[in-house]
Design a protein around this nucleic acid. Structure first.
Lengths: 165, 165
DNA sequence: ATAAACTTTCATTTTTTTTTGAAAATACAA
DNA sequence: TTGTATTTTCAAAAAAAAATGAAAGTTTAT
């Protein structure tokens, strides 16, 4: 297999995996493209490489920057903006975990708290509250696991975990 | 807030959360409905409660069974099928993690292995291989974390992790 | 100020995903 | 077997999500 073939395959793989995780296919492809590029790419280069429109390229690059895994880079003497992906994959992983937690786990936690406010005390209600409590429990356990993944140093974490198993 | 109101809110919340995780909204709503129901529900009851078609109800219940978080239940003397959700949320969590790993992480691992088969040895190629290796590394670390979540008993896990932090 | 280079927005179009519902298949009873 | 209850399938319709591209906005140079 040739390098460019492999790179293209990687971009496709990344793209289709993303869809199963509720992430826009193109956004993942832009990310993959930047990951396999030696040099920072301009919007025009992204458009050309992935055959997408300017609007699409712009939106997705911007969103990748929102996620904190792509950075803008300016070249001296040039007006155009260039983009680079964070190549430290462990870092990318942590960043994504952190963001998703903020965007999804936190809203869930407050929803569950709201749902606890039911004012009757029938057996059904107690059953329902038990369910909500169990959900809260699992949520906070997931939180601990994620904290572990995020806050700790990569090697330290792995050593400890491997010892545990 | 009344109980039924809370239940409905829960079903909606669960549904909209699911979409950010690449899970069909209706499937999540059926799951939530079964979670908050005291009794097993028939397809007709699900259709009525969520205002969805028979085909849709059937497909999603079937998929929930594929995920291993909903079970069929037969009532004696009745031909109709009834469905119950596993109410042990920690179990549900583990089951979903297990399934997603099988469906998504394993294919990723083999994709990455394929991508390692590039036959030139330029500096660019080496760079690319480094990226693939880093991805493999993070993947297997995620695997260890997930194993930890799945294989261990709930309380044991939490004790250990809390001690670590 | 004017213009050129570039980025962002967003109404419209296209694509993808989900839902419907009627027909086909299946299971059971008489 | 024949009929009835129930589940499953799947082509077509509807809904949702994503992409386009031209116009508007911004920034910098002259």
């Amino acid at each position: 297999m040739k390098l460019n073939e492999a790179k293209e395959k990687f971009i496709q793989t990344w793209g289709s995996l993303a869809t199963s995780w509720g992430i826009n296919r193109t956004m993942a492809m832009v990310h993959a493209l930047l990951l396999v590029s030696e040099n920072p790419l301009s919007t025009d280069e992204i458009m050309e490489a992935l055959v997408i429109s300017r609007g699409n390229a712009n939106m997705n690059v911007r969103e990748l920057m929102d996620w904190g895994i792509v950075k803008k880079e300016l070249k001296m003497g040039e007006r155009k903006e260039y983009f680079v992906a964070d190549k430290d994959i462990w870092n990318v992983f942590k960043q994504i975990v952190k963001e998703r937690r903020k965007r999804e786990l936190e809203p869930l936690v407050s929803s569950l708290e709201e749902l606890r406010q039911i004012d009757d005390k029938t057996a059904d209600s107690k059953e329902f509250l038990k369910l909500i409590d169990n959900l809260s429990g699992v949520t906070s356990k997931a939180n601990v696991l994620l904290d572990l993944a995020i806050k700790s140093d990569e090697n330290w974490l792995m050593n400890k975990l491997l010892k545990l198993l």
